[in-house]
Design a protein around this nucleic acid. Sequence first.
DNA 1: CGTTAGCACTCAATTACGACGAGTGCTAAA
DNA 2: TTTAGCACTCGTCGTAATTGAGTGCTAACG
Lengths: 341, 341
Amino acid sequence: MLSERQRMILNAIIDDYIRSAEPVGSRSISKRGDVSFSPATIRNEMADLEEMGLLEQPHTSAGRIPSIKGYRYYVDHLVTLGEIGDRDARMIRSFFAEKMTHWEGIIEHAATVLSQMTNYTSIVLGPEMFNTALKHFQVIPLTDNSAVAIIVTNTGHVEHRTISIPEGITMDDMTKTVNLLNDKLAGVPFYKVKSVLHSEIAKELSRYVERFEEILALLEQTINEKQEPKVFLSGASNMLTQPEFKDVDKAKSILGMLEATPLVVQLFQSNPGGIQVKIGTENAHEAINHCSLITATYSFDGQSLGTIGILGPTRMEYAKVIGLLDYLSKDIVQLMSRWHK
Amino acid sequence: MLSERQRMILNAIIDDYIRSAEPVGSRSISKRGDVSFSPATIRNEMADLEEMGLLEQPHTSAGRIPSIKGYRYYVDHLVTLGEIGDRDARMIRSFFAEKMTHWEGIIEHAATVLSQMTNYTSIVLGPEMFNTALKHFQVIPLTDNSAVAIIVTNTGHVEHRTISIPEGITMDDMTKTVNLLNDKLAGVPFYKVKSVLHSEIAKELSRYVERFEEILALLEQTINEKQEPKVFLSGASNMLTQPEFKDVDKAKSILGMLEATPLVVQLFQSNPGGIQVKIGTENAHEAINHCSLITATYSFDGQSLGTIGILGPTRMEYAKVIGLLDYLSKDIVQLMSRWHK
DNA sequence: CGTTAGCACTCAATTACGACGAGTGCTAAA
DNA sequence: TTTAGCACTCGTCGTAATTGAGTGCTAACG
């Protein structure tokens, strides 16, 4: 329901505003090459666009800035993904050239690279174990009454906890139990572990092992312990370069929120896969009501494993960021599957 | 070489300034209970203290603020460690009441608690493997040509990397090698691992295993890979509450530096153990020339394992922070040794 | 002789005010 | 339908004037 001219004008305004962070007036639009109408005409259209809620005016005698609805329209209909710049391409290449030693390292490093390329903040939610399967489970004694339990998933992810072993349980029993668990649980997805544990293993275990309930409870708790996903942040200080956050209080409320893992995790909920853009108040937390969050899920072997996101002001370079994120997340997926052959 | 009265005045000025963040004048000192002289007398002393370099004046008609040398004197001679507040005591108690599952978790959580108690930024350098000994080493196959290598130290710390296995090396050879390594290396401190590997193991290994050099090189690299210490930050946004950093640029340079792990690691070098205070320009990086860093090393079993630090403005509550840090670091050490019996 | 009251002086911070100018909405002409 | 013209709005910027906290110095006091 927008005329071609209106779309061009809206596009021009948002483009300008993204660059300058200042309200853009009819005159400056008219002087750009792409919309060759007089300021007056443009003013009329701008008034219409404002009535539709796509633009707003900070005060009477200022230019227009895009509203959240305006950005939404821009992202949904107007944005054209540009090519990836020279410098960025080089950074991506050198990123993939690096030697990867572990899983989280890749993701964390990807976040760093992204924040450097975009000058925004990047947020990565670490792998969720829910969908992955157990590969190997092991308990390594440390002292008489403590041990390290290690869990390896089929994606190469490693979790570990130190556990203390109740008085009177022998290492031998422990080992037997662990062996049995490995036999029975290898390849079982984590969300099924609990039921398998009770249905298949408990009975068999009781034959070999004294006080098996106690051991089982300990290990079950170790395996199943709900853990909130790891959150990696990178480039949080980039927020401070944005003129909209030159007010320290606003900056503080954003950075403060980013430090609270559970809140950040909330932001990433409702993720349908692919690339998603949440603009301003569309976000789950009011501290970032003046920010936009662009997220992409990364996956391996068909399992959605985690999410990578870029947080910037609503006035962020959507085209560039979406392009980069799309490119990078696909490449990471590819890298990981190649890595695991 | 300071008279008793001068010390009292200096102490009063720094106390006041820490609270208010504003230059303190002779009048306000005189009105405090503890120094009962007239403003004029105090002014004279202040002029002397300034001549000695312990105070400075932002401009002619302002009060005095402590210089770095002033803070240094305060920390070295004047500060009296206060009791730990009620609220803080409660937080510490509930901290120790929590269930600890792993090593890094304790340290990281301690950092969070510290930053909440102090309203400053806390920085923790994770355990350094250099001093610890190998407890167990293991390789778990993941796919045909990749595996996860896991290293457990005697402190219960776990490291892991994904390695790719060269074409033509059998899992059997791998296992033999790993077993031999466990036999020979258990209990060996990491800094000796390399030499032991070459002097004792290489020869013996060559008897059992084909292409042993290749495998050994791979594992050696895995074990020895230099890793920069993990850095945990907590409460970085607290920096923004300090009036001295209400200027976004200053805040950005600090937060930016904190994001660069190698720079942060540098800050912690030269650590004699115990509690150390670095004030303003005494610090290794100019971004924090207006900050003070108070550090404490934590250790286990006599080995220095890492460092925990609090970063705040030079105008920070030295008494409180030093007290807390001292208390907490001692308790953590105790906790860890009890934990490992 | 150390201490203190008195006083002139300094200077950052705050407030007040006018000029400026970017941008608008409306009207009327092309 | 588009555009030129014009009066009007309102935030920003620069300049003064005002204020007040704090100082250093001098002289008097006990």
